[in-house]
Nucleic acid binder design. Structure first.
Length: 654
RNA sequence: GCCACCGUAGCUCAGCCGGUGGAGCGCCACCUUGGUAAGGUGGAGGUCGCGGGUUCGAUUCCCGCCGGUGGCUCCA
């Protein structure tokens, strides 16, 4: 759990995971829940294997009073094999054990259960008599709902088992008479991870004691983050919206998680990209472009990638094997490895819009625009001479991220802030952390680690909490203290010595698709609250729709259209053979912010009647409307309408 | 990756127990020329996700695959 969503590039995660896996390897059959001897309560240890088949044969008696048996050999297909160690006092908890076994069997959808006495899971076994009694009792109770086979007790047995190998195929459980205690792994995690809420005045509150009354979203975020609580069963609202608004859609001809974007969706996506790019260039980044695929055998990349090939898309080019990038880190680090940099030039920043970054996420995890296998990641790396410089830039980037999300219509409260750091970093930078919380002036989720698990010592994310109470990270910045060395990225200091810089990983917006997801989810929540859903005007694909009352006013409409277009406003005109109210209804359904109806009155008076989304119907001059829109789209990128201006000429994509 | 549910016209969906399919919207044609959220009439659209099996006969039952969604697992 503590390894969730921690780093942007995953170097350290991978390293840790592999270390964990190696450490666990000799006892891998035992799985995650290590068995902890517990003197106080009776407990039963069970190792479950979801098997294609198991074959066992009784060889010779292991104890004097071994069970009398008729058949020495048995083979069972498609079953849940339960290796069981019966401990002292277990006859009292048979009911719970039956429940647990049935629970697992139901999850795996198996109808056959094999009970296999297995002494080696425990060091305080029950007496053979008691164990026999317990096993027979278990068998009897399970028989009510399942086909049950029981391997003979008290014999040395040979066995062959085929494990299905999916994540749930190996489970271990310790069932206790009293309340469940946490596993050793969880305890270890708890020992080193601390969660708090930090209030704007710099106070640490326990996550359990903090009063969430005014911060319901923070509560949802904390629940999601710490306990992984999921709530409702429902199709995420943004999926329906992205289709209905003709923004994006699934592409059956590609791999899952690779979307198609219709003209309007492509426009919004491009505008978001243009916007983020101009922000980071203003911030002082140099835009670069690096390859999307990398050599598995490159020395800097090889070591960890070989351990996790399944996570990457792989590309065969003749005999050579490449992987598709999952962030822009590699390309930029390899580029900076070859650069010659003086301390006088720091901090320097490189930026790339990683289109796409590829991650072969697990299938069950792909949802609409929230999590994809191919996504667009604005990725900036800052190389800083020392921690002071790194912190200064971190703070500026934090402020930039707030502004960026604001311009997408996402304000503090729409998303929750998480700040994560090591204890050491905190001890040395208490005031700095506090200043970050002060900046947002609201409670923030804090995660602190005793040791540095990851490549960074400090990171923040802004997490959007959606209609289904799931949290998704948007903006993030991390201070990376070890990849410079790993990649051999250096600068020359005052004395001419080579030094490793600190590296800041920054995505001011998060993945572009995810920004779209957040905007759509927010719109959906708005509409539930009775607020008309809409995009910020600068992102609205059509900003003004002109509806002539009759064909004869189309010419006037064209004139209005041209003068608005000259002002760099996206306008179209509904020239279809429909009633006015019908056309208005459709324009409303497209979330168009300004609907202009023109007819006899307007032609005569030389003005327009504007229906403002979420507001009134007002009569004004074209210039007035242009001014309103220019004000709302000030300093934002502009792109032309990528569709025919006349609605009659426009195809339906869905 | 696992489990469950779903996949029928461009879209949203109906179709009980097996006998080659329906509605609304959209599209096309005609009528209607309309003033702020659905004007009328008619018409054309389907290899019922794909591949096997059972059957005289499968959209319907069974198996496999693909895709979507939910949950689990996972999440750089």
């Amino acid at each position: 759990m503590g390894l969730r969503r921690r780093g942007k590039c995953g170097w350290e995660e991978n390293k840790i995971r592999s270390a964990l896996e190696m450490a666990v390897a000799p006892i891998i059959l035992i799985g995650e829940n290590n068995f902890i001897p517990c003197a106080k309560f009776p407990s039963m240890r069970i190792l479950f294997i979801h098997s294609d088949y198991i074959e066992y044969e009784a060889k010779e008696r292991a104890i004097k009073n071994a069970e009398e048996i008729e058949e020495k050999r048995e083979r069972v297909e498609e079953c849940l094999v339960s290796f069981i160690s019966v401990e002292e006092g277990d006859s009292n908890i048979i009911g719970r054990v039956v429940g647990e076994i049935e629970d697992v069997a139901e999850k795996l959808n198996v109808k056959t259960i094999v009970l296999y006495p297995y002494a080696h899971l425990s060091n305080k076994l029950a007496s053979p008599d008691e164990a026999m009694k317990v096993l027979k009792e278990l068998e009897k109770e399970l028989r009510e709902n399942y086909e049950v086979h029981r391997a003979p007790f008290g014999w040395y047995k040979s066995f062959v088992i085929s494990c299905k190998g999916h994540p749930l195929s190996e489970l271990s459980k310790e069932i206790r008479g009293e309340k469940e205690e946490e596993s050793e792994a969880l305890k270890a995690e708890k020992r080193t991870t601390y969660w708090y809420i930090m209030t704007p005045d710099g106070e640490f509150k326990s996550v359990d004691e903090f009063d969430y009354k005014d911060y319901p979203n923070l509560k949802k975020f904390v629940d999601y983050e710490i306990s992984g609580t999921r709530a409702v069963k429902q199709i995420p609202p943004h999926v329906e919206l992205m289709q209905k608004l003709e923004l994006a859609d699934y592409e059956p001809g590609s791999d899952s998680g690779n979307m198609r974007y219709y003209p309007k969706g492509k426009l919004i996506k491009s505008l978001i990209e243009d916007y983020v790019e101009s922000r980071v260039l203003d911030f002082g980044a140099m835009e670069v472009e690096t390859p999307i695929m990398y050599d598995f055998n490159h020395p800097s990349l090889k070591s960890y990638l070989n351990r996790f090939p399944a996570r990457q898309y792989q590309v065969l080019s003749g005999k050579d094997k490449y992987f598709l990038r999952f962030a822009a880190c590699f390309g930029q680090f390899l580029l900076m490895h070859d650069a010659t940099v003086s301390y006088r030039q720091l901090p320097i920043r490189v930026y790339e819009l990683a289109k796409y970054a590829f991650r072969r996420e697990q299938k069950g995890e792909l949802v609409g625009l929230r999590r994809l296998r191919a996504f667009t990641m604005p990725d900036m790396h800052t190389f800083a001479a020392d921690m002071e410089q790194a912190k200064a830039d971190f703070k500026r980037q934090y402020e930039m991220a707030i502004q960026v999300l604001k311009d997408f219509g996402l304000n503090l409260g729409d998303y929750e802030v998480a700040i994560r750091f090591t204890r050491k970093f905190y001890e040395e930078n208490k005031e700095f952390i506090r200043s970050l919380v002060e900046l947002v002036n609201r409670p923030v989720l804090i995660q602190m680690w005793d040791e540095r698990f990851f490549y960074f010592v400090l990171k923040f994310e802004f997490n959007f909490v959606d209609a289904m109470n799931k949290a998704a990270a948007l903006s993030t910045v991390q201070i990376d203290v070890e990849n410079a060395e790993r990649y051999g990225i250096t600068y020359y200091d005052e004395k001419g010595d080579k030094k490793y810089p600190y590296i800041l990983h920054c995505s001011p917006s998060g993945a572009v698709e995810r920004v779209m997801y957040a905007m759509l989810e927010k719109a959906s929540m708005d509409s539930k609250k009775g607020i008309k859903p809409m995009f910020p005007v600068w992102l609205s694909p059509v900003q003004v729709r002109i509806i002539p009352v009759k064909d004869e006013f189309k010419e006037y409409g064209d004139k209005i259209m041209t003068s608005l277009e000259d002002e760099k406003i996206r306008v179209d005109l509904d020239d279809r053979d429909m009633t006015v109210s019908r056309k208005i209804r459709e324009a409303e359904r497209e979330w168009i912010p300004y609907i202009v109806v023109v007819g006899e009155r307007e032609v005569k008076e030389g003005n327009i009647t504007v229906r403002i989304r979420g507001g009134d119907v007002k009569t004004m001059l074209v210039e007035d409307l242009a001014k309103i829109i220019k004000e709302k789209t000030k300093d934002k990128p502009f792109r032309k309408l990528p569709l025919p201006k006349y609605l009659s000429m426009r195809p339906k994509f869905r």
